[in-house]
Amino acid sequence: MLNRHHRIPDTHRVGERLVRARHLEVEIAGKRIIHDINIDLYAGEVVALVGPNGAGKSTLLAAISADLPLSRGEVLINEREISRWNTTELAMRRAVLLQNIGISFPFTVEEVVRMGRSPWAGTPAETQDELIVSAAMRMTQVEELRERSYTTLSGGEKGRVAFARVLSQATPLIFLDEATAAMDIRHQEMVMGIARDYARQGGGVLLVVHSLDVAAAYADRIILMKDGTIVEEGKPRDVLKSEILSTVYSHPIRVIEDPDTANLLIIPQRPFSPLSPSDHLPSHH
């Protein structure tokens, strides 16, 4: 049941700051992973964390969402230091989808999605549980999996169910760490479209994504990281430039504009052409 002292989130206006993170540092096993990072996140925007493997993207997201302790710095959600929200209050304000979903018991898909409603037990919002859970499953196209055991699903199906759980939590903030990693193209686009709509309706979305094309298409702002620091931050067209990306990823990268859609296309330079089997491969006679 809800403790009477729990504070229900206020309604937020687009442009209002939801997260203020200052001088963040994280050490794991004696190694500093994040170095003096500052980030703000506002209602109505999608912010993408991009960068090569080991850049610190997932660590940074986990630190901002309070799933990983800070070595230094502070994170404020709704202008209140994150440690001053109790567990339920924090869960009312931000929902988190991490890379590893630790569900090993045979819960049904519907039961997993319904877990997102637990912070709202005992509040007036509890009366909307059925409506919100059904809407989340419909949006993520997992309704037909409703009675399936979560542990029997494919990686992509598990990802969609986990995303539905995040949506059912109905928080002003959502944090997504490689939410589309195991999904096919259609469902990747579905998830990103939902995230875009979430921001359009006044939410704030911070996500880790590897695909630079996806970041360019859906993010309002991109934070490019390397070695635990922010290299560049700004609008996609200001950050996703050939020279910058080629340096950060240590590989030649071209950035061109799609002539039909004007979207940015990010293409790694490849020094070879597709092999012609008749000319290049050994015979199997």
Rank of each mutant, 00 (worst) to 15 (best):
T171F: 03
L167V: 02
V166E: 00
M190R: 14
M192L: 15
Q169E: 06
E178Y: 10
I174A: 08
A181V: 13
D197H: 14
A164R: 02
L173W: 13
M183Y: 09
R196S: 11
D184I: 08
F175R: 03
F163L: 10
R165A: 07
A170W: 12
Q188Y: 11
R186I: 10
A182V: 10
P172C: 15
E178G: 09
A195Q: 08
A195R: 04
A164G: 03
V166D: 00
D184P: 13
Q188G: 11
Q188T: 13
A170S: 15
A181W: 12
R165N: 05
I185F: 15
T180H: 04
E189N: 11
D197F: 14
M190S: 09
I185E: 14
H187G: 02
V166T: 00
T180F: 06
L173Y: 15
D184A: 09
A179I: 02
A164D: 03
I194N: 06
E178V: 09
I174S: 07
I174R: 08
L173P: 04
V191S: 07
R196C: 11
R196L: 12
R186F: 11
M190Y: 06
I174Q: 14
R186A: 14
A182Q: 14
P172M: 15
R165Y: 01
A182H: 15
M192D: 07
I194D: 05
S168V: 03
G193N: 14
V191N: 02
L176K: 00
